[in-house]
């Protein structure tokens, strides 16, 4: 298994636009993302997991340390790293079809071909008969399907997903998670998936990294043993080892980090 992305001793600062104050969000962070793996990062809110994803996406420059993709430093966003955002980030002034075909358009693909390609991925994302609608006419779940289709259509080498299902209702979220499993079964994908839900991380991931706050670092990484073909919510809820794993990781996420523990002891 070859390594795609290497994060080495990374530190990230966050600048508050109002006050100008800087705040260390991530420190001493090491992480390797292998080719064709589905890696989930789980952690409490404010642990810096989304900041880490921003840096890998190239929206944010490292303060210290480095991020390499296939051996080269990441200097900015690029089409080889597709991002799916929690807030969908669809362009409100474009139809669903144009949104899905956007990456292909930016590559200079002719209209007919890119529409055909985009339609194929809209179908994969279970979207039918909405291609001429505008994003504001869609539900949250449908918007996120469009966003996923848009990223898939652009055939990125790595797909970065930043809590993509956090803003949709519980029913839709489960459906979307199962669809994502189905999509990852039919095409080899390298995915970095950020979530605050331990269940979601185990359900989706080949591996799950637990991140701790203050400033954020990777605490531990566990392998998920369940075959992807068997992952449906009905099966997983009935699976005792799934539940055991969930409880174990929940404890890890809830436990105060090493830094926080020493700070508490000192106080």
């Amino acid at each position: 298994m070859s390594t795609r992305i290497v994060v080495d001793q990374l530190a990230l600062d966050y600048v508050n636009a109002e006050t100008g104050a800087t705040h260390r969000a991530v420190e001493h962070c090491d992480l390797r993302i292998a080719a064709d793996e589905f890696l989930c990062i789980v952690g409490p809110s404010g642990c810096g997991k989304s900041t880490l994803l921003s840096a890998i996406a190239g929206f944010l420059a490292p303060t210290h340390g480095s991020i390499l993709m296939d051996g080269r430093a990441i200097t900015g966003p690029g089409a080889e790293r597709g991002v799916v955002f929690q807030e969908y980030a669809l362009l409100p002034w474009m139809t669903v079809l144009d949104n899905a075909a956007l990456g292909l358009k930016l590559r200079g693909m002719a209209r007919k071909e890119r529409y055909a390609e985009a339609r194929r991925f809209l179908a994969i994302a279970n979207l039918h008969d909405v291609e001429h609608k505008y994003p504001h006419e869609l539900s949250g779940g449908m918007k996120q399907r469009v966003a996923v289709a848009r990223t898939l259509a652009n055939a990125p080498e790595v797909m970065l997903m930043d809590e993509p299902f956090a803003a949709v209702d519980a029913q839709t979220r489960m459906a979307l998670q199962e669809e994502l499993i189905r999509i990852s079964l039919r095409s080899r994908l390298t995915v970095l998936f950020i979530t605050h839900s331990v269940e979601e991380a185990i359900f989706l991931g080949d591996r799950v990294a637990v991140m701790t706050p203050g400033p954020g670092r990777i605490r531990t990484i566990v392998d998920v043993p369940f075959a992807r073909e068997t992952r449906t919510w009905t099966a997983m809820n009935a699976n005792a080892s799934f539940n055991a794993m969930r409880d174990r990781l929940l404890d890890l996420v809830r436990q105060p980090s090493h830094h926080a523990a020493t700070a508490e002891a000192a106080a």
Binding site: F59, G76, P77, V83, L91, L106, N154
Partner: peptide
């Protein structure tokens, strides 16, 4: 919205 700027840059803009 900065997020839209980020989104299209990630698509190669």
């Amino acid at each position: 919205p900065q997020i839209l700027v980020n989104a299209v840059r990630s698509l190669g803009a």
